[in-house]
């Protein structure tokens, strides 16, 4: 089995990535709850945003947001 040891240095370097990922996920979940969604249902988009790193929130922001004309 592949195991990757998380060192202190690696953790510090990864923090900005975690911040981007977490920030995007929270932003998208708030958008989903406040504005509604398109193409899939609300819970599916929330699951996509939480479980698919970066790709999930970006996909939601491109194709899942409810547009107000």
């Amino acid at each position: 089995m592949n195991t990757i040891e998380l060192t202190g240095e690696m953790f510090i370097m990864l923090l900005p990535l975690v911040a981007i990922q977490l920030g995007l996920t929270i932003y998208c979940v708030i958008k989903i709850m406040k504005e509604g969604v398109e193409n899939l249902n609300k819970w599916a988009w929330i699951a996509i945003c939480i479980f698919l790193n970066l790709i999930g929130p970006i996909t939601f922001l491109i194709v899942g947001r409810k547009r107000d004309i």
């Binding site: 370097m13 900005p16 990535l17 981007i20 990922q21 995007l24 970066l54 929130p57 970006i58 922001l61 491109i62």
Partner: peptide
């Protein structure tokens, strides 16, 4: 979307 993805891969 664009800034987040560019920065994500840059890091």
């Amino acid at each position: 979307v664009i800034t987040a993805s560019f920065l994500f891969f840059a890091i």
